[in-house]
């Protein structure tokens, strides 16, 4: 038996918003530690890795590991039936082929139940090592969102350069070129407004803005986002989900042909 209850449906809605444009179907892997999901986009250019630890739930029970194969669009439709303040419970039998969503209104006067058929999803699991990166940039999530959106109007690719001066985002296209520079401002009082750059050496990498714009759908999940970069390795874009998990996106850099 798997059963997990979260106090606010809003959180699960935000998680779905953060994956639904990138992933069609995915296995939600549930264990006694929590729920995780790993999936590539259909072009296999990027990867999303979600973790929601059990301590982020009001109630959590998972007797044995279970993979819930879910069509993300169907789940999104069901979750739209929940109010943001509803409590939501997910429930699945060990050998079952459905997952049940229960929404309870804050005043407990309304209870809705939706049953969704599970799918058999054959997905390869990739081992993602935790590694030190050459440079990291922590910045307000809304700032990163704005930069990706603005530079998309100029070109398809952004060059991210980290130097002692700060981090520079540059896009160029037929109509011209745009450059946005952020300087380290770790002295700002409000932590969520800080731009914090760590760097072992200067680097410059290029990424497809199309995918970065998909990643910024997670903006509502966190105040800050962290970009981690190492030459010739995938960029990691991480949004922390409170203190109980994260959504991480990995994007292979564009390399000179």
């Amino acid at each position: 038996m798997f059963e997990a209850r979260m106090a606010q449906a809003a959180l699960l809605k935000k998680v779905l918003e953060a994956v639904k444009d990138l992933v069609t179907d995915a296995n939600w892997d549930c264990t006694s530690a929590g729920i995780s999901l790993q999936a590539m986009d259909s072009s296999h250019v990027s990867l999303v890795s979600l973790l929601m630890r059990k301590d982020g739930f009001d109630m959590y029970r998972c007797d044995r590991p279970i993979s819930l194969g879910i069509n993300i669009a169907s789940m999104t439709k069901i979750m739209k039936c929940a109010n943001n303040n509803d409590a939501v419970t997910l429930r699945a039998e060990d050998e079952g082929d459905t997952v049940v969503f229960t929404f309870e209104s804050a005043d407990q006067e309304k209870v809705s139940e939706f049953e969704m058929k599970l799918m058999d999803i054959d997905s390869e699991h990739l081992g993602i090592p935790e590694r030190e990166h050459t440079a990291t940039v922590k910045m307000p999530a809304s700032e990163f969102h704005g930069i990706c959106r603005d530079l998309s109007t100029i070109g398809e690719t952004v060059q991210v350069s980290v130097t002692k001066e700060g981090v520079q985002f540059t896009a160029s296209g037929d109509t011209g070129k745009g450059t946005i520079t952020l300087r380290n401002n770790s002295s700002v009082d409000e932590e969520s407004q800080q731009v914090v750059i760590t760097m072992q050496e200067e680097l410059s990498l290029s990424f497809a803005l199309r995918y970065l714009n998909f990643f910024t759908k997670a903006t509502a999940l966190a105040d800050s986002v962290t970009l981690s970069m190492t030459a010739d390795l995938p960029l990691v874009v991480e949004y922390r989900i409170e203190d109980t998990g994260y959504i991480r996106y990995f994007l292979a850099p564009k390399i000179d042909d």
Partner: peptide, 14 residues
């Protein structure tokens, strides 16, 4: 000209 590589190239299958 720049080339976009696949993400799976960077991680080993489990």
């Amino acid at each position: 000209k720049q080339k976009q590589s696949s993400i799976s190239r960077f991680f080993a299958r489990k």
